[in-house]
Design a protein around this nucleic acid. Structure first.
Length: 820
RNA sequence: GGGGAAGUGGCGGAAUUGGCAGACGCGCAAGACUUAGGAUUUUGUGCCGCAAGGCGUACGGGUUCAAGUCCCGUCUUCCCCA
């Protein structure tokens, strides 16, 4: 018997699998397909233990599906554009391309050491010109179909470094520049957008998707659909002020208006007397984040503009204020304030002594009084102080489900002062980045013909390599002497290229399509591959992508469908999220904290199989947990015990039939549990189940089971169950036992249900809810027999002291509960 | 502030969904083997108690023959908010 030396067997099998193309996935119409996808990594340098934590169970499950007869596609690639490459260039003078591709090379090597079943022929790297050629092509398609457009939009800008900043480069509550610490300012730039808002309602529909409730809730909140009405107020000077409200039924209670400090009319409306206060207030508001501004518990601030508006429903003159709790980015940036029935308006009115008029009266309580109310009333009731609508019922529903709201909306529309309206928090997707290391936006500007797309046969618009890095961080594309010079695709006259690049979420919105045929150069993907493999059956990745990436890719797919490029509305049918591996200090792993665990060291010391099984075993997959360096000893020991048991000589069988029956029962019970766990993504109990079975097998061997038919079956099934989790040791032992190569193309075993049944059942006996006795019965004992045996038990008789029990509950095959 | 998730031994976690709480593993303790042990192996290990027994799933109530699981309230931690 030899020792278990993973570093000897693992590279050997990895090389053989690769040479044999064992994990190549090709179209096979005879077999059901399964597209298993795990989120692709950013090539930051090293594969992190977190990557392993995400990929290993995904790989194990892909292998399980393959053993179940599916033709499985499990590809891998790199999300290779992005800011860190540019930061490295600025800090260390390495070209982003060099930095990125060196990292990719390193990470490929690390991934190979995992022994995953990636089909590397299908690898896609988003920074390859052959990849971003199609990213650009998609942009042009979206542009041609009116889904991409250009408009002014504010960006974060550092006045000291004189550069635009990405969101993640703006730090802290005071929103300062990551590099120099200067507070950032907003600057308006012309930028490109995708019309994701056009798909807002469709994105709210998750029909046919097996996605976690949590992700759907996050997306739903992100889209933030509100139903209500838009109403036109007029200022005394005659300007129109449109407001959106979800509560048009409370219009008669509007006692003032509030404009966002950024609202374009604030300047015009403000009277000379109030101008200084308003200007000061605007400056102060601009320095706060939206979250701070919206917080309901925050002390309300605001100033009077000196102007008045007229409430269109009753002609009452109401003051116009400006306050930071109204955001320009939501609705119209102006609200009608109904302090009696809105918490924030109420707090504001009380603070500044503004009038409060109740217009919804709850049932069965004394009449509300604006002078004495202590909180806003937001519930159901009937309308009061509302002219012809007095007495109308208002319930807790939103929109047209509410009779009060419906009646008022219809009346407003009839009067021409308002109409039914829906607003969303979702904004159009801003895709311009003032960066170098991204896919150039393939557009050309001509003085005469305006913006036009680069012709298809000129794609890709290549990133130039010969760029200079200025410490300002301004995009080198802008500073490049010749790159932006182009010919107008329409008139042929000199024109200029767009120097912005695309948001990398654009690259990752379609990578699952490039995996289908990264070799293909006639289009983004080969149709036959698409028709066979799509949609993705199982998508796994971190919850942090719930809103951005997962929403963008859904939008992208719907847009492709509408442009007749693809069929189907949803790219990924089933979604599951893993949790995060924290450092041993329970903090998020990061180089700066020095709490990072490097998988390479672990693989070197314990082998990939031990690392894989430990990552699967040590935490509930969807929860994650802090790393524990000694824990891995457990799975390493387990594998050594597997090795020892399966590779040592068998000896003469001498086990009793009972021993063999018990062994076979445990094997099939484990198979049943492990199968269930793979289906349900409950990975940690797969390993614990296999550990338990191993312990039973040691006992059985002790009792002389080795060499029997049951023993052979146990070993065979054990290795098949082990194969998805620990592919190397399973393959090695499989070969050692003289079984046909490769274990990874064997079938998943079938559970023998009959073998799983217990002969005997142990029934706990409770008296007044406390466990007092345990009795063993043959499994088929009737309820009556169990009941009488329980009552006859010595311990129960002692407690009964000759009395009759008040109640006896017998739960079939579970327990007996006696009440005295 | 709003929305969401979660609180089970010293630690990570089990518990067929209302039915024997603590599977499996780490750690720890004692023993065996050994020149040695950071190898291997055996046994033990929720807490209190010499024991009988009692108490135990964040805390306080409730429903039930029976609650980690269901209901009400409180506290704590974590995640998300362009």
């Amino acid at each position: 018997m030899s020792d278990y030396i993973p570093t000897q067997i693992e590279p050997k099998w990895q090389a053989k699998w690769e040479a044999d193309g064992l994990y190549h996935s090709d179209i096979d119409p005879k077999r059901p397909k399964h597209y298993a996808l795990t989120m692709l990594p950013y090539p930051s340098g090293d594969l992190h233990i977190g990557h392993w934590y995400a990929m290993t169970p995904a790989d194990a499950r892909a292998r399980y599906m393959r053993m179940n007869g599916y033709n499985v596609l499990f590809p891998m690639g790199f999300d290779a554009f992005g800011l860190p490459a540019e930061n490295a260039a600025i800090k260390r003078g390495v070209h982003p391309k060099v930095w990125t591709y060196k990292n990719i090379e390193n990470m490929r090597k690390q991934m190979r050491s995992m022994g995953a079943m990636f089909d590397w022929r299908r690898e896609a790297v988003s920074a390859d010109p052959e990849y971003y050629r199609w990213t650009q092509w998609f942009f042009i398609q979206l542009y041609k179909h009116g889904l991409a457009y250009r408009k002014m939009s504010p960006v974060d800008f550092c006045p000291h470094d004189n550069t635009t900043l990405a969101r993640e480069q703006v730090w802290g509550e005071d929103r300062h520049c990551e590099r120099c610490g200067t507070p950032v300012i907003k600057k308006d730039l012309e930028q490109w957008f995708f019309r994701i808002t056009q798909y807002a309602d469709e994105l709210l529909n998750y029909e046919g998707l097996d996605w976690p409730e949590r992700v759907r809730t996050l997306q739903t909140n992100w889209i933030g659909r509100s139903e209500g009405a838009s109403v036109i107020f007029k200022t005394e000077m005659g300007d129109s002020l449109e407001v959106f409200t979800t509560r048009p039924d409370t219009l008669w209670g509007a006692t003032f208006m509030v404009l966002s400090p950024e609202h374009p009319l604030v300047g015009k409306l403000t009277t000379a007397e109030h101008r200084q206060a308003v200007e000061d207030y605007k400056k102060q508001a601009a320095r706060q984040s939206d979250i701070e501004r919206e917080a309901t518990d925050k002390e309300k601030t605001g100033v009077f503009t000196g102007a008045y508006a007229v409430n269109p429903v009753n002609g009452v003159k109401i003051p116009i204020w400006t306050a930071d709790y109204v955001l320009m980015t939501y609705g119209t940036g102006a609200i009608m304030a109904v302090p009696a029935h809105d918490e924030r308006d109420f707090a504001f009115a009380r603070k500044f002594g503004l009038q409060i008029i109740p217009v919804i009266q709850p049932e069965g309580v004394p009449d509300l009084d604006g002078e004495t109310m202590e909180v806003a009333y937001v519930g159901a009731g009937h309308m009061i102080n509302s002219a012809q609508f007095n007495g109308l019922a208002v319930n807790d529903e939103k929109g047209r489900k509410n009779p009060g709201i419906t009646a008022v909306i219809d009346w407003l529309a009839g009067q021409g002062i308002g109409k039914e309206a829906v607003t969303y928090k979702l904004r159009d997707w801003l895709i311009s980045r003032q960066r170098y290391w991204g896919a150039p936006i393939p557009m050309i500007y001509c003085e005469k013909d305006g913006w036009n797309p680069v012709p298809d046969d000129e794609l890709p618009v290549l990133l130039p390599d010969d760029v200079a890095w200025k410490p300002t961080g301004e995009s080198p594309l802008k500073l490049h002497p010749t790159w932006k010079q182009a010919k107008c695709p329409v008139c042929g006259e000199p024109a200029v290229r767009e120097t912005d690049t695309m948001d990398t979420f654009m690259c990752s919105s379609w990578y699952h399509l490039r995996y289908l045929s990264p070799w293909y150069n006639q289009g983004p993907f080969e149709e036959s591959e698409y028709n066979y493999w799509m949609p993705v059956d199982t998508y796994t990745g971190g919850i942090e992508h719930a809103t951005m990436h997962l929403m963008y890719t859904r939008f992208f797919h719907k847009a492709l469908r509408d442009m007749q490029i693809t069929e189907g509305s949803e790219p990924m049918i089933q979604l599951r999220n893993q949790g995060m591996v924290l450092g041993e200090d329970h903090e998020k792993m990061s180089k700066s904290r020095g709490n990072v665990t490097a998988p390479d060291d672990l693989v070197h010391r314990y082998g990939a199989d031990a690392v894989r099984s430990y990552l699967i075993f040590f935490a509930k997959w969807d929860m994650g947990a802090p790393w524990n360096r000694t824990g891995i000893e457990g799975t390493y020991r387990w594998l050594k015990r597997v090795w020892a048991l399966f590779s040592e000589p068998i000896g003469n069988p001498s086990a009793s039939p009972e021993t063999l029956k018990v062994l076979r029962r445990k094997v099939h019970q484990t198979l049943k549990q492990v199968t269930h766990d793979f289906e349900q993504f409950e990975f940690n109990t797969i390993v614990s189940g296999l550990m338990e079975l191993l312990n039973e097998m040691y006992k059985a061997k002790e009792a002389g089971a080795a060499g029997t038919r049951e023993w052979s079956e146990a070993v065979d099934l054990y290795l098949r169950m082990l194969a998805p989790v620990c592919p190397h040791i399973a393959e090695e032992l499989w070969e050692l036992l003289g079984k046909p190569y490769s274990i990874h193309i064997q079938s998943w075993p079938k559970v023998d249900e009959a073998a799983t049944h217990e002969d005997e059942i142990t029934i706990p006996i409770q008296i007044n809810g406390k466990l007092r006795d345990r009795l063993v019965f043959p499994a088929d004992t009737s309820e009556e027999e169990i009941k009488s045996a329980a009552l006859a038990s010595e311990i129960v008789r002692k407690y009964l002291e000759g009395r009759q029990p008040k109640k006896v509950i017998v739960v079939q095959k579970k327990l007996v509960s006696i009440v005295i």
